[in-house]
Design a protein around this nucleic acid. Sequence first.
DNA 1: CCTACCGATCGGTAGG
DNA 2: CCTACCGATCGGTAGG
Lengths: 213, 213
Amino acid sequence: MTMQAMQTARVVPMKKSDRTREEILRSAARLFRDRGYHASTLREIAQEAQIKAGSIYYHFGSKDEIIDEVLDLGLREVFNAVHAVMEADRDNPDHRARIGRAIREHLNLLVAHGEFTSANIRIYGQLPEDVRARHRPLRRQYAQLWEDLLSEARDAGAVRSDIEIVPLRQFLLGALNWTVEVFRPDRGSLDIHADRCMALVLDGISTGARNRL
Amino acid sequence: MTMQAMQTARVVPMKKSDRTREEILRSAARLFRDRGYHASTLREIAQEAQIKAGSIYYHFGSKDEIIDEVLDLGLREVFNAVHAVMEADRDNPDHRARIGRAIREHLNLLVAHGEFTSANIRIYGQLPEDVRARHRPLRRQYAQLWEDLLSEARDAGAVRSDIEIVPLRQFLLGALNWTVEVFRPDRGSLDIHADRCMALVLDGISTGARNRL
DNA sequence: CCTACCGATCGGTAGG
DNA sequence: CCTACCGATCGGTAGG
């Protein structure tokens, strides 16, 4: 197998059943995002994936298994990419630049994996508690990534010292996610979008905010 | 009937059927907010309102009629209150203060009518198109209120002239709604919360933003 | 406002 | 991966 073939194989899975499986997940993510979890039926998901309803159970054991994987796909790639950027920037003394690069990477991934991240953001609050519970550890891990970054920035004097880290992280990630949902920027306008978020959020944090977060 | 009685009558409806009707709406709003529209069944709504499922149809013709009224209640009172504040402030030359007061009133109402405004914010994106279409005129009206306020501020030089009004309004209202959903501030901390939003959002708009919105 | 019920549709399964 | 089907539950209705 040539290098070319191996790379292709990683992007477009070779086995047909794998491609169908991915199509089910992608269809499910789109429907979950647009109509919510309960309103999206397995019959609609199957139709979008161009198979019959009963055939979904060849690939997944239950609807819960599908939502679990959609949630996981939506966040894990964001986690890995942002984690990598933060690691590469570990010794940079410019904390504002570090935060900026993390923001940019976060937005990048949100746009790249549209269906899955959007579905995750939009429906998480409305899922049954047992589904949320299974997904929570990954959420906590990602939140911790940002809280560490912001803590270091605060300790270095780059962020106002009277701002609490947890609400700051909530506000920052919330604002970023919200803007992507509203603006749906294309790849070309992503840098502008990231700068805008930086300016609106970070300038407020570091110089403008009069009250404790 | 005394003045006292009349005022009481307006707050707590006298007829029992009116009170049941209100209880249905409030239960529906809570369930819609917490689980989404489709996941909230008429049977659950009825149970929360302490009546039997079939009895809902004594008060409402369909589930659609309930969601219509929940959406309307969630936004109309916000619209009226914010509109009144803007009118009272019409000739104030301090545009930053005008925007600040409008923000404060908006947040005030979001907190005051928690179930209905939260339900409106959270589930609107996932509703069937015909439900959204019926609710859209009121949404547009409220958006126009803010766009007028922001346009005047920009024309007076209080907001950067290279910022487009529509995206600015989307971002501002989106950020305000988001923070209320995340922080759920009590009445006591509302002023602090409003100031924080002012600082984070408005300082970015007027002095910090490098790029066009 | 309740009881008793309807047709439709859901998530899921058996057998191929 | 499909056909044919199950019990459960949904929004909604009839009759009181």
